[in-house]
Amino acid sequence: MSPPESAPSIQDKLILLVEDNPDDETLTLRALSKNGIRHRIEVVRDGVEALDFLFARGAHATRVGWGMPTVTLLDLKLPRVNGLEVLRQIRADARTRNLPVVVLTSSREDEDLIQSYGLGANSYIRKPVDFVQFMDAVRQVGNYWLILNEEPPGHVP
C-alpha cells in the first residue's frame, strides 16, 4: 500500500526546526536553501508543538507514517515548554531516545551548555550574529548531520 499523498516517503530526510523567532526561522531557512540543502523542513514554534510533532499527537496526530527527523535543530529559549525540557522528554522516550538533536541557540552561558550535554544533546551550536558565519555554521551542520552522519535505526511513531 502506498502512503497517503500528503505524507512523503519515509526515505526523505526531514529536518525539524524548533524556533520561535520568525526572523531566525527565515534566516535559517535561507541559510539552508542557500547552502543547497533541499530536504523537507518542518518548523515548529514552541516546545509543546515540538513534542506533539515528534510523538504524533495533538495538532500533529495525523503525522503517522512520516518517520522521525534525521536531525532536530533545537532552540533553547522557547515559549511554553523550553528547549531543555523538550530534550529531556526526547531522551526519556524509547521512540526518540537516539534522535540526533543539535542545540542551536544564541546563548553561550555555561549553564546552558552543561545542561544541554547533561540531557544528551548531540551537539551544541551557538548561532553567530554575523550572517556569513551563520551561513557557514548551517552549511556545516547540514553536511554533517544529513550527509556524513549515519542515522540511528529509524522509528515510525
Binding site: 526572523d23 531566525d24 535561507r30 546563548s107 550574529v129 554575523d130 550572517f131 556569513v132 551563520f134
Partner: peptide
Amino acid sequence: LSYSISHDMRAPLRGIDGFSQA
C-alpha cells in the same frame, strides 16, 4: 541579566545583519 542578554539581545542583531545581507 547576563542570561537574558546572552539569549535575547543577539537574535535581533542577527536579524539586522542577516536581512541587510539578504
